[in-house]
Design a protein around this nucleic acid. Structure first.
Ligand SMILES: [Mn+2]
Ligand SMILES: [Mn+2]
Ligand SMILES: [Zn+2]
Ligand SMILES: [Zn+2]
Lengths: 143, 143
DNA sequence: ATACAGAGTTGTAATCATTACAACACTATT
DNA sequence: AATAGTGTTGTAATGATTACAACTCTGTAT
């Protein structure tokens, strides 16, 4: 189900978006690191490969990919966006202790109420916050 | 169901939070303006009553109220927080054209999957984005 | 009354992610 | 070689939020 890097490359071509080296690298990074990275993580990692990379390019690329529907922007809070190559509907759980963001399945469409029948829905988000099992057991050990 | 201003005042007292003039005004504003205002909206409006009001105080107050569970912070995106006096579970729809945030009912608990049974959930959010009926019909008129 | 402590408020400066913008590089076409 | 178009880069601006130190207010102990 998860699209391969090649699938994504093909989709860019279809949408007439130039296949620059930097764009492909950002896309590849997202395809291989499905941990919902921040701009800074992407930038810092790719800089190892592309020493001249500019953070502006990362921002530009992510905006283009998001507009093309290839990545989803996740704004759980933090005023620091995260990016998800998985654009299928699913929920996110952010651990308030370790910061990890977990995916979980959600049948979002089943909860659209009658009241929204006259609205045009473009984007659906479900996210929870709390503590993950790992951090919960760490806490127990301390007590 | 909606708590009155007096209920809220009482709850502050119970939680040993000082009932300063500024705090009560912020609380009152939120109780009377259920449009999910921004810090700036709250600040600008209250300044008419309290000319010496500082924006820092608004930030401080909202943090205290949020920590006490009296208001809910909504971070739909925009890197501009909004505040909701309604802390019961419900969904939010943000119109991408006029910016209005609508409430809608959601049975959030019904969609918590098995996979999260070992997680401690502190905060649940559902929000959609798109176009509201008003903006949709405006668009039709133009075409 | 005076002094003192604690809580709350205020204004200013810092922080930090994001955006704007202009110069530069790269590629293809004439 | 000149030109145009696209993409990249670095720097400066923006804007919400936070840090911080000075000030005010109120109640209490001396
Ligand atoms: Mn995800
Ligand atoms: Mn609401
Ligand atoms: Zn954790
Ligand atoms: Zn609208």
């Amino acid at each position: 189900m998860d699209p391969t890097f090649e699938d994504l490359r093909q989709e860019l071509k279809t949408k007439n978006i130039g296949l620059s080296h930097q764009r492909l690298k950002v896309l590849e990074y997202l395809a291989q690191n499905r941990c919902h990275p921040t701009v800074d993580q992407i930038y810092t990692e790719l800089q190892k490969d592309i020493p001249t990379l500019s953070k502006t390019t990362v921002y530009n690329t992510l905006r283009i990919l998001a507009e093309a529907g290839l990545v989803k922007v996740i704004s759980i809070e933090d005023k620091e966006c995260r990016f998800d190559i998985d654009t299928e509907d699913h929920g996110h759980f952010k651990c308030e202790s370790c910061g990890t963001i977990f995916d979980f399945p959600v049948d979002i469409d089943s909860l659209i109420p009658e009241e929204l029948s006259n609205f045009k829905i473009n984007d659906k988000n479900v996210y929870f916050k709390g503590l993950c099992p790992g951090c919960l057991s760490n806490k127990k050990e301390i007590n």
